[in-house]
Design a protein around this nucleic acid. Structure first.
Lengths: 125, 125
DNA sequence: TTATATCTACGAATGATTTCGTATACAAAT
DNA sequence: ATTTGTATACGAAATCATTCGTAGATATAA
């Protein structure tokens, strides 16, 4: 299975692919340029590499190729999360949670969601 | 302000510096080699670069230089967390919290801590 | 004192990622 | 039909991170 760590640039593109289903390179590029200066062929190349690596699939029947993410957002996030917790919080996921909770203005709904989740976890034992 | 993103290797070293106060290169290296194969001069070079970048400070009065982290663990973690949330969870810290909570076996104590924190947040409004 | 060990400094090889120029093909507009 | 715009492919430059060899200085042991 995918030992494929997406690079940072690839991740940016994955996010766009996740958010807006199957899209052409041009579409991804337009969004990208609103965030940073980058040439079209750079975006293109990256997406081609992603296709090679199996991070994205593409439909090449038409001249304008259509790309779609080949790995799921959740699975990828979990992988990256694990690595991040390990690397930055020395393995303590709870420390991370505390920090994330403490620093961000969570809405009432979100806090309720979290409480509900905790309930669920507690009941499962 | 530090626009200085520590690289992965630098982060590994920072963790050691955070955990064991001011230490010589050799000390950091010893710990590093238990985790991965790496030459002494590699560690040295990295730490020298970190000193240049302002990620670490060093006392060079003696032949054996003593290094200490120049940026705080909390501040760094927060920065990295922000970037990570942005990069991987499209800015939704709550989504990250849910995922971290959902997937890791949190102890009863930890869950209690989180509940307490949520209480605190709710009362603050 | 001489040899051995241990340190820093430095430069450069290696490797991975990102960037973009150029060639080429096709489509659309004039 | 010719020009103009927009695609892909590809190679290679530029950048960044990591790695290590070697030189030179200083301490330690024999």
């Amino acid at each position: 299975m995918s030992i494929n760590k997406p690079t940072e640039s690839e991740l940016e593109i994955l996010q766009i692919l996740w958010e807006h289903g199957p899209v052409p390179v041009r579409f991804v590029h337009e969004i990208l340029v609103t965030k940073k200066a980058v040439g079209y062929t750079t975006t293109l190349k990256l997406m081609q590499i992603m296709a090679e690596k199996g991070l994205a699939n593409r439909d090449t029947t038409n001249r304008t190729h259509i790309y779609i993410a080949a790995i799921s957002e959740e699975q990828t996030q979990q992988q990256l999360l694990d690595r991040f917790v390990e690397g930055t919080f020395r393995g303590s996921a709870m420390k991370l949670v505390m920090q994330a909770l403490g620093n961000n203005t969570a809405s009432k709904e979100e806090l309720d969601q979290i409480k509900a989740l905790i309930q669920k976890i507690e009941n499962e034992e």
